[in-house]
Simulated assay, not measured.
Amino acid sequence: MSEKVNIGDKAPDFELVKPDGGLFRLKDQLKDKNVVLYFYPKDNTPGCTKQACEFRDQYEVFKEHDAEVVGISGDSADSHEKFEQSHRLPFVLLSDKGNQVRNMFGVPRKFGIIPGRVTYVIDKNGIVRYIFNSMTKPLEHVKNALEVLKDIEKK
């Protein structure tokens, strides 16, 4: 059963194994950073590659806004490692086999089968400040997340 995370909710904590074998825990990241958590359908597909490369190209700007970018899909750690290397991605991609984390956040599927593309901006207090759900506008995920981070800084 999946819950749907909404703006203003505390983000559910989770832990997944990173490609290097270490553990990624959301709560550890939130100690000193905002987190831009993006769920995407599949490595090496046109939209997902565009989105990942745009996050890569803007990565330094995200860091300037005290944010870490984290991508999650159901692909294997091996697939993620190849995807990261071929596109020189500076952020971690996590494998969510069985879609447990996707379900925790309530990320919908398109046509009931294709894993959705949803981005969450989570502030340092663990509060979800923004959610963007669009399969067809992968670049807007990046642009919108940056705008939200700028607004968080102003407050």
Rank of each mutant, 00 (worst) to 15 (best):
E68P: 07
Y130L: 02
R109P: 00
E60Y: 01
M135D: 11
G71P: 10
N144S: 14
L89V: 02
D123I: 05
V142K: 11
V92S: 15
I114C: 06
V61L: 10
G126T: 07
V142I: 06
Y130F: 15
V142N: 12
K82Y: 11
K143F: 11
L94R: 04
I114D: 03
N125H: 12
R109E: 15
E54Q: 10
E54I: 01
Q100H: 14
L93W: 07
S73M: 05
P138H: 09
K50P: 00
E68Q: 13
G98Y: 09
Y130Q: 15
N125P: 03
V101D: 11
Y120E: 02
D123P: 06
V107I: 12
Q100P: 00
V61Q: 13
E140I: 00
A77T: 05
K50Q: 07
N99A: 12
P115I: 02
G106D: 07
S95Y: 11
R102N: 08
R117N: 13
F55G: 01
H65Q: 09
M135L: 13
H87M: 00
F55N: 02
A77P: 01
K124F: 10
G116S: 06
F105N: 09
L139T: 08
F132C: 02
G74L: 03
G126A: 05
G98K: 06
N144V: 01
N99W: 15
R102K: 14
K124P: 06
Q100Y: 09
G98P: 11
G71T: 01
G71Y: 04
D75G: 09
Q58I: 00
E81P: 02
R88P: 00
Y59R: 04
K137A: 12
C53I: 02
I72H: 07
V128L: 14
P115F: 10
E54V: 01
K82D: 13
E54P: 04
V142Y: 15
N144G: 14
R56F: 03
H80W: 05
D96P: 09
E54F: 10
V92I: 14
A67P: 14
F62D: 04
E84D: 05
E64C: 04
T119L: 04
H65N: 14
